[in-house]
């Protein structure tokens, strides 16, 4: 099977020739950048370089998907936050909004020609020309909580606002959500095959789970319903206490990291009597970057035996991960991925 068929077969509930090895989060590494003679500024300004680095994990290591963009600031930039671009890392906001400025957020009328969107559009087009129908193109969307907590207000101020003025925070999320709705439709129109809602700031590790329904889940649900594309939900950290809620949104797949055991996810799915593909739960650091051959093999076998439908890291690749490690990971999945 081609990677596209292999991955889509899982979303359709079928049985592929083997378990796909993917990453629905960021796939950027220093070696990929060096290979394409690019830095963090280039990959947001040059569609060719964005496409090259987004496909590097497939092209150079054999991963079964392509993922872009590479950080979570695209949405905030569209909402008017100014960024400082660093050659050595993702862009950072020049300043955050104050609590009182939340009503100043303006969602532009047309997003297609704003911020980094033209670069993303061209990169998807370029990838579609080369890989369309052969390797699935995954586009990462940062849902409202990650946009607000990560870049609009900042993590600390968001936490304080959540306690002091939850109504105002909800208003801010609602306002930004109009942008997210348009984004998923644009990505679909431009040819993306998969949408991943990557929401690290919605994690119960940083958020009182009492707020999860209102401030995180409701937006995931609406975005899943908005697009016809397979939509993957990736909430970081220990998500055991919110699994039932995530499952209730009917995502096309659930990604989880090493803090959530595979058996907990399988148990929650069984209790909900639902069959939703799951992707996990390798630690990008311990199980890939730092792992020796033995540990990586042990973990790949463990997650496959645990019942994952995709072998994947639970988060962004560790940027210092060598190409050889990722090749090793893919080889292991090729070797053990047919055992079920």
């Amino acid at each position: 099977m081609l990677p596209y068929e292999r991955v889509m077969e899982v979303f359709r509930g079928g049985t592929p020739d083997r378990i796909p090895c993917v990453n629905f989060a960021s796939v950027i590494t220093k070696e990929f950048l060096a290979y394409y003679n690019a830095n963090w500024v280039d990959i947001y300004q040059d569609p060719e370089k964005m496409a090259s680095v987004a496909s590097a994990a497939h092209r150079l290591c054999g991963l079964d998907n392509i993922s872009l963009p590479f950080d979570q600031s695209v949405e905030a930039e569209l909402l008017g936050i100014k960024f400082d671009y660093h050659p050595d890392g993702p862009p950072t906001p020049l300043s955050f909004l104050s609590e009182e400025q939340y009503f100043e957020i303006v969602v532009p009328h047309s997003l297609a020609d704003k911020g980094r969107m033209p670069v993303i559009q061209k990169a998807i087009k370029r990838l579609k020309e080369e890989f369309g129908g052969r390797v699935p193109i995954n586009v990462i969307v940062s849902p409202p909580m990650t946009t607000v907590a990560g870049y609009l207000l900042g993590p600390s101020a968001t936490n304080l606002m959540m306690r002091r003025f939850p109504g105002a925070l909800k208003g801010m999320l609602e306002e930004t959500f109009r942008l997210h709705l348009e984004l998923v439709n644009l990505y679909e129109e431009w040819g993306a095959d998969i949408i991943t809602l990557h929401d690290p700031k919605g994690s119960p590790d940083v958020l009182n789970p009492g707020f999860f329904d209102s401030l995180v889940l409701s937006y995931h649900k609406s975005l899943i319903e908005e697009t016809k594309l397979p939509t993957v939900v990736n909430v970081c950290g220990n998500i055991i206490h919110v699994l039932e809620k995530i499952i209730s949104c009917n995502p096309s797949a659930i990604v989880f990291d090493y803090k959530t055991p595979v058996k907990s996810v399988m148990k929650a799915l069984s209790e909900a009597n639902k069959k939703i593909p799951v992707a996990g739960n390798l630690s990008p650091f311990w199980d890939i970057y730092l792992a020796d051959d033995e540990r990586m093999e042990e973990r790949v076998v463990e997650v496959i035996k645990g019942g994952v439908d995709f072998v994947s890291p639970g988060c962004d690749l560790w940027v210092a991960t060598p190409i050889e490690k990722l090749r090793g990971l893919v080889s292991l999945v090729e070797k053990y991925g047919k055992i079920r």
Partner: peptide, 11 residues
């Protein structure tokens, strides 16, 4: 308690 509580307590 959760992170927001810790942050507020710290403040």
């Amino acid at each position: 308690a959760f992170l927001p509580d810790l942050v507020l307590a710290g403040e």
